[in-house]
Design a protein around this nucleic acid. Sequence first.
DNA 1: AATTATTGTTTCTTTGTGAAACAATAGTAA
DNA 2: TTACTATTGTTTCACAAAGAAACAATAATT
Lengths: 235, 235
Amino acid sequence: MSLSREEYLPNISYDSVIFGFSGEKLKILILEYHNMKTFALPGGFVKVDEDLNTAVHRGLSERTGLKEVYLEQFYTFGSMDRHNPEIMGRIMKEQGHSDPDHWLLGRFVTVAYYALINYENVTPKPDELSDSIEWYDYDHLPMLMMDHNKIVDKALEHLRTHLDQKLLSINLLPDRFTMKDLQLVYEAILGEDLNRANFQRKMLSLDILERHDKLYSGGSHKAPFLYSFKKKTKT
Amino acid sequence: MSLSREEYLPNISYDSVIFGFSGEKLKILILEYHNMKTFALPGGFVKVDEDLNTAVHRGLSERTGLKEVYLEQFYTFGSMDRHNPEIMGRIMKEQGHSDPDHWLLGRFVTVAYYALINYENVTPKPDELSDSIEWYDYDHLPMLMMDHNKIVDKALEHLRTHLDQKLLSINLLPDRFTMKDLQLVYEAILGEDLNRANFQRKMLSLDILERHDKLYSGGSHKAPFLYSFKKKTKT
DNA sequence: AATTATTGTTTCTTTGTGAAACAATAGTAA
DNA sequence: TTACTATTGTTTCACAAAGAAACAATAATT
């Protein structure tokens, strides 16, 4: 990937809030520019002959190896105070680019997306401008570049209000899971405890789960059923 | 307004779905290029040193004279099949522009917004590329350019699912209105009839209305109360 | 066989919703 | 003045949904 001027649309970028979960805490994928002590959301640019959505999927795939992940676009940020050519210039200089008129130093309107994945399935790779990429607990995010903390907040707000509708598209759980697993996902995302009995009733009433054999975990108690999501029905 | 290359960000546009209402039917503001028999949503471009939201407000103000109208951003459309240089070229030729490399012929990622206004307060003005601008009933929209019909559909879908939260920001009603007026707004937007008693109960329970003196309309029946929206409370 | 931890279900109560009835009242007609 | 009508505000009733707690089942352990 060359980031040459002719290949990409100028002034347009995307940023992605990649939520990760693995049975316990909600995490987010964050890029770091080590020498700069600067943190940022993973993002990218749109090729001149490429769909916006394709570009975002391509970027996620390059960083995580994951394909066919559900990505939800939730807002486009376009205020002038996003423009910070100084810090961008320093990041590029660290990596050996020093053209003072480089298109990356311009002002960007960024389209923001979020995704939800099981972070144990993934070993993230940094891009050509960053030094590393790591999972951070949502509760302990570092200070991010420009307006990226606000972007994270808005992503989570959007996810919380649309969680039920997005459930089927979520890539957080293995094919088969227990009701307890599912409840843990909900509690991590919503940030609050839920009543077990009512949660079970609600999930079953949504009519999106298929019940399978029981899981004999070796625990000295009743074995839980395993569930999977029903295939989406074409309407 | 000159549309010169240096003044605007290339490849980024906005489109606005302006819903209008005046006691009866839901309407939408549509531009027409007469000789082309082409219809489109009113839209515009973002100046290089201007916030995206500011640009959209500026565009709405230029066309309707309205300021401080509530605009909701709901989606950004960025697929390649939005690119149609042929039709854009013909529109520009009609108006005397004929540069085959003009930036307006490029591909655009468009950020879409909607607004709700009382259309009786407004006399819309066409822009420099269009011949006229008119209100069309939502039920009888003409075929619009490119993906603009889809943009309208998605705007209404968004509005319907968020109507309760957006109520306070809606500019459809005068300062004081009856419960009947409010119900007509809901029915026009949702496209269905609502039960009068339950609607009243729900609106009162939202705790966003202030009740004032009765309105003696001259009708031979009980006079309705007038209501206004409570001032937004700062949290 | 008793015990423990956890899961699945049921019950009870409270809250919300849809449909219908009832009550109030501003003008009109007799 | 007195019915009458149209419309509005409120209440009631039936029913569904949601929250809390109790009850029942059961896989391993003691």
